[in-house]
Nucleic acid binder design. Structure first.
Length: 559
RNA sequence: AGCGGGGUGGGGUAGCCAGGAUAUCCCGCGGGGCUCAUAACCCCGAGAUCAAUAGUUCAAAUCUAUUCCCCGCUACCA
């Protein structure tokens, strides 16, 4: 079972949680997801792409409380923020949705109601921590107490300031309410449980035939082998989607957020006049791009829910590796974080260069260590030196001598070189090997540089003008192919080269077959401009010191 | 602790699933060339007991077992 051009493909990215700004970790999923979608389109597949804000859950309620604003205000702010980041980075979703939108409530509640009708949910009484002062049940995140291992002040889910161990809320010594400090007491509450254990066989089969990264499959299979427990899907919070039929409770955020993949499709389908059931009930091929940290939700809980309501489950789950910053695990509280808006956009960093760095750094499932110095080296050598230089030297030379596309016909060598690259990329992106795809396109630029070097047009232009024209025509065609093949990686740059090649039409809709379509001699060429600027040492120093300051102040705050 | 991923020249990486002759690519380093181009480009070269040990095999980076080291996840943080 592989993707075909007749398939209706839905690609989704894990939803960003709307309680903070976008950072480099987010991009590890969104940029490859977007590049994948763009490759599918370039190669003629029928694909739609969705993402959106995850708006509910205890941390948002807590963050809003601490900021003194309503949860609505908080998520509106971050929803707008992420929408803007997506636009700036050219992450071309067909809809950037929101799980706080009415269309999502409707879909999420319908799913739960259907699960209940089908007998997959049951209500049980459980004893949970409660605060008598605030008159509310306390989720793990709302509990503080003493860590049983190291004695530091710890939260109900982890010892975040001390030994970093994961904790069960029951382990905390002297558990208290995080809001008012009153001691937590146990109190009985009625909650709803999804009978996950009924789906053990289904989930085993599902994961065995699941495409995508091995990481996703193996995580889930290991988890299933350990035995599946039934899963609480209601919470005692004020903020969230009311539990259908038991409106004092809300749906647990992990029981409704990924329903956004469906509700966003529905909303997009409503706006564009197509039928969402083509994707989710009939023949859709669903592909989830996620971070490695949420594999369980996507390979265990979510497919079980989908199965329970008879919707299509994922064809592939593509799990990315984690991101490190200057050798340390990403951590906002410790300052090891690169903020997209503050540290990248406002610093004037080329966003296509960021896309390139993330895609070409390493294999998608491996950890990516974001280092500014390394970023500079890659940009200056590969983007400026190889790709940018190739485009500029060819276009400038031709513009200087001809001002239009020179006379020529394609040689077999150039045609087959391009064709080989087109085929190589076809194989790699289907296997989610985005680094290899980017490398293959860059290799074509190296090929072009060699071609230019060896044909020595700066000499032939003086004595054998026709010869120079013919050779330059080859170089220009190589550039055309690069432009099309690099579009999924660097859409903005690709647009600029396309324009500099004097081509009409939208590069984002050009198919790969165009790579070997000969350029039309005589087409006027505009004045070329350099595509990338070198990153100066001082810039790297400034960026690195920004980061170091953040790490320092985080360290000071912790003490 | 359990589960999962990884350890390849100075750095970062590909190859491992389907074992085969000189182990890939981007840098760095040494040498040469070119001068159209953002001191960019092109060519040549040095540099790796493929984490360790034991095994399977005519043949192991690749398969098996054990060990060491890094990282992630573990159901109420998303």
């Amino acid at each position: 079972m592989t993707l075909t051009k007749a398939d209706k493909i839905v690609v989704t990215c894990g939803l960003p949680y709307a309680n903070g700004t976008a950072h480099i970790g987010h991009l590890r999923t969104y940029i490859p997801g977007d590049a994948y979608v763009r490759y599918l389109k370039r190669y003629g597949y029928d694909v739609v792409f969705f993402c959106g804000s995850d708006a509910h859950g205890a941390p948002i309620e807590l963050a809003a409380e601490q900021a003194g604003v309503s949860p609505q205000k908080l998520i509106e702010k971050y929803h707008a923020h992420f929408e803007k980041i997506f636009r700036k980075l050219n992450i071309g979703v067909d809809l950037y949705g929101n799980t706080e939108a009415p269309y999502h409530y409707k879909r999420a509640q319908t799913i739960i109601r259907t699960l209940e009708e089908n007998g997959y949910v049951e209500a049980r009484d459980v004893a949970l921590p409660y605060c008598n002062t605030c008159q509310t049940f306390l989720a793990d995140r709302f509990l503080v107490g003493t860590c049983p291992y190291c004695g530091a002040i710890a939260r109900g889910d982890e010892c975040d300031q001390g030994c970093q161990r994961y904790l069960d809320a029951d382990q905390l010594i002297n558990p208290r309410c995080v809001t008012c400090g009153s001691p937590a007491v146990k109190r009985n509450a009625r909650h709803h449980f999804f009978k996950l254990s009924m789906f053990t066989d289904f989930l085993t089969k599902f994961n065995k035939r699941l495409k995508g990264t091995a990481l996703a499959r193996n995580y889930a299979l290991g988890w299933i082998r350990q035995g599946l427990k039934d899963w609480g899907i209601s919470r005692d919070l004020k903020w969230g989607i009311p539990y259908p039929g038991d409106e004092d409770l809300v749906l647990y955020v992990w029981a409704e957020n990924y329903a956004g993949y469906i509700s966003f499709t529905e909303e997009w389908a409503r706006q564009t006049g197509v039928d969402w059931e083509d994707y989710w009930i009939r023949d859709g091929k669903i592909i989830n791009f996620i971070g490695a940290d949420i594999v369980y939700h996507h390979a265990v809980f979510w497919p079980a829910i989908l199965k329970g309501v008879n919707y299509n489950t994922a064809y592939a789950i593509v799990a990315s590796g984690m991101v490190k910053v200057e050798g340390h695990g990403l951590s906002k509280s410790r300052g090891f974080v690169i903020d997209i808006e503050e540290d990248i956009i406002k610093q004037g960093i080329d966003l296509d260069a960021v896309r390139y760095y993330i895609l070409s750094y390493t294999g998608y499932t491996k950890d990516l260590d974001f280092i500014w110095k390394d970023f500079q080296i890659r940009v200056n050598n590969e983007l400026v030196g190889i790709l940018g230089n190739y485009a500029y030297r060819v276009l400038l030379f031709i513009h200087k001598h001809f001002k239009k596309i020179p006379q020529g016909t394609l040689t077999d060598e150039v045609t087959s070189q391009i064709r080989n690259t087109v085929e190589a990329i076809d194989k790699t992106f289907h296997r989610f090997r985005f680094k290899e795809a980017a490398d293959a396109a860059m290799l074509l630029a190296s090929f072009g540089n060699t071609l230019f070097q060896q044909s020595e047009p700066w000499k032939t232009i003086k004595e054998e003008r026709d010869r120079a024209q013919f050779d330059l025509y080859q170089c220009l065609q190589v550039l055309k192919a690069i432009t099309i093949l690099i579009e999924p990686v660097m859409p903005a740059i690709s647009e600029r080269i396309w324009q500099q090649l004097g081509q009409d039409g939208n590069i984002h809709e050009v198919k790969v077959e165009e790579c070997t379509e000969p350029l039309v001699p005589g087409t006027k060429l505009p004045n070329p401009e350099a595509l990338f600027t070198k990153i100066a040492d001082e810039t790297v120093e400034a960026l690195t010191s920004r980061l170091n300051q953040r790490i320092e102040s985080a360290r000071a705050k912790a003490k």
